Amino acid sequence: MKLFLVNSIRTNNFNDEQIMGKIQNMWEEAYGNLGYHQNSIFGIYYDYESDYKGDYSLSVGIEESYGEAFVEIPKNGKYEIFKVDTTDEKGVINTWSKIWEQEEAGLLERAYSYDFEKYSTNGEIEIYIAIK
């Protein structure tokens, strides 16, 4: 899958005091640039330094052509899919916490290649975690 990047940041879940502000600004700028985009929007996690505790890149992407910057997500990758409870305003954060808990418990063996959040036009959100 080829996703064209609208906006990107580099951050760390535990060592970046301004992570929430950076992520919020990135999404706001991306939505401003996309205007009336009608298809799914993706939050793409990649270029991992190590595991979820290390630095990583986060981008907002779409499937339609949007400039020259893009990420190619391999089609042969295996993913564990987590559905987000969209009735909970912290649904995305809570789902990521669940993913990290499963990893720490040895129930999820992550590949740390390309993970992504898919924001569908029907309001559903799914998080795809690359697994070994």
Rank of each mutant, 00 (worst) to 15 (best):
D88F: 03
V84N: 06
V84G: 08
L58Y: 08
G77F: 08
G67Y: 01
V71S: 02
S57N: 04
N76W: 03
V60D: 00
E64A: 12
E63I: 04
S40Q: 01
G54M: 00
Y52P: 04
E68I: 08
S59D: 03
V60T: 07
I81V: 09
A69E: 09
Y79H: 05
Y45F: 04
E64W: 02
K75R: 12
V84D: 00
K53V: 05
V71E: 13
P74N: 15
V60E: 01
G61F: 03
D51C: 10
I73W: 09
E80S: 12
I81M: 07
F82A: 11
Y66I: 03
T86H: 03
Y52C: 02
E68L: 08
I62E: 06
G77V: 04
D85C: 10
S59H: 00
I41D: 06
E80G: 07
E49W: 02
K83Y: 09
D55Q: 12
G54W: 00
S40P: 00
I62R: 04
D88C: 05
K78V: 10
K53D: 09
G61C: 08
K78P: 04
F82Y: 08
S40W: 02
E80F: 14
D47L: 13
F42T: 05
Y46I: 07
N76H: 12
D85H: 11
I62T: 05
E68R: 07
D55F: 07
E64K: 14
G77Q: 11
F42N: 06
G54F: 00
L58F: 06
S50L: 07
K83H: 14
S57G: 03
S59C: 05
S65C: 10
K75H: 15
S57M: 00
D51V: 05
F82M: 02
I41E: 09
G67M: 00
K75V: 11
Y52H: 06
A69P: 07
S65T: 09
V84F: 08
D88S: 08
I62Y: 01
S65L: 07
K75W: 12
I62L: 02
T86G: 04
D51N: 15
D88V: 06
E64S: 13
V71K: 12
D51Q: 12
K75A: 15
I41P: 15
K78T: 15
E68K: 08
V84M: 02
D55H: 11
Y48G: 04
Y46G: 05
E89P: 10
